[in-house]
């Protein structure tokens, strides 16, 4: 309204308001983000506290930090072994998921195999406990409890549908003209898939691999039952810290930090793919 009256003054007035508005906006954004970040901050802070600082009241925000908790984690439990187990399982399950999932996703996208897509989506809906129970009974018979193959096979339940689901969208985005051109040049369907489509879907492959890697790394319930001492993964290990001797919050928070850190770093490193992957996988559902 005032825009009509005094353009000059208003412009200045506007720019002042704009600054205020922007400031308020960023303040609001910061305010919104704070609670979501606070948990991580508290985890980090607690991991540098001694036992006494841990139980102080009111809780300490500023204190003399100690690294003892981190040394404890490595000294008191075979943390490195657990980490290696986690890596073996999540990487293998992701690679296998790609081997099986890539052609399937391509096929669903190219030939609009919506029934298969629905089957994949359905499998994502089934709670893991109903896979875990039969798998546990079967592995019990064949002596596979506490083996890598058991964990990798069950983690495939997590990785394969996720990879397929995310990749369908990426393959759909690849223009068919490119593939047809390659075919006219004498390329076979397999050749087209490997030489044209897969490279073009590379960002999607990265995104879906990272997603599946993280979800496999994070998985708790399968390893809780199917892993023993030899194959115990990190989430189960950190849970069992809680019941080691007394409740040692320093050790628990340090271990939690160490487990979550690779995930957080990975998320940051490939953020742009991840956000696209999430958006595509979700919106096109």
């Amino acid at each position: 309204m005032s825009a009509i009256a005094q353009p000059r003054v208003v412009r200045r007035h506007r720019s002042w308001r704009k600054v205020l508005n922007t400031t308020l906006l960023y303040l609001a954004v910061a305010l919104v983000i704070c609670p979501f970040m606070f948990i991580f901050v508290w985890m980090l802070l607690s991991s540098f506290k001694t036992g006494v600082q841990q139980t102080a009241w009111p809780p300490l925000f500023i204190f003399e930090p100690t690294l003892k908790n981190y040394f404890d984690v490595f000294q008191r439990v075979p943390f490195v072994d657990y980490a290696i187990n986690s890596v073996i399982v999540s990487v293998s399950a992701t690679l296998l998921g790609l081997v099986f999932g890539l052609p399937a996703a391509y096929s669903i996208a190219r030939w609009r195999q919506s029934k298969l897509a629905i089957a994949i989506l359905t499998s994502r809906m089934v709670p893991w406990i109903s896979f875990l129970l039969p798998w546990y009974l079967l592995f019990t018979r064949v002596g596979w409890v506490d083996t890598y193959q058991a964990l990798i096979l069950t983690h495939l339940i997590i990785t394969m549908p996720m990879i397929i689901w995310l990749l369908i969208a990426f393959f759909e985005d690849i223009p068919t003209e490119l593939e047809e051109a390659a075919m006219i040049d004498g390329c076979s369907r397999l050749g087209v898939f490997l030489k044209v489509s897969v490279p073009l879907a590379a960002p999607g492959i990265v995104a879906s691999s990272i997603f599946s890697l993280i979800y496999s790394w994070n998985n708790f319930i399968f390893a809780l039952i199917l892993a023993g001492r030899k194959t115990m993964t990190l989430p189960v290990a950190v849970y069992s810290f809680m019941s080691y001797t007394e409740v040692n919050w320093g050790g628990i928070t340090a271990a939690a930090t160490l487990i979550a850190l690779p995930v957080l770093i990975l998320t940051f490193a490939i953020q742009r793919y991840l956000i696209k992957g999430l958006a595509l996988g979700g919106v096109k559902a």
Partner: peptide, 25 residues
């Protein structure tokens, strides 16, 4: 981009580990 990535952290971070932090809090 940074804001969105920060927002992704809670859903990516290992739930077991995060649940323990919540127990403490």
């Amino acid at each position: 981009k940074v804001i969105r990535t920060l927002f992704m952290l809670p859903m990516m971070a290992t739930p077991t580990a995060m649940a323990l932090i919540w127990v403490l809090m």
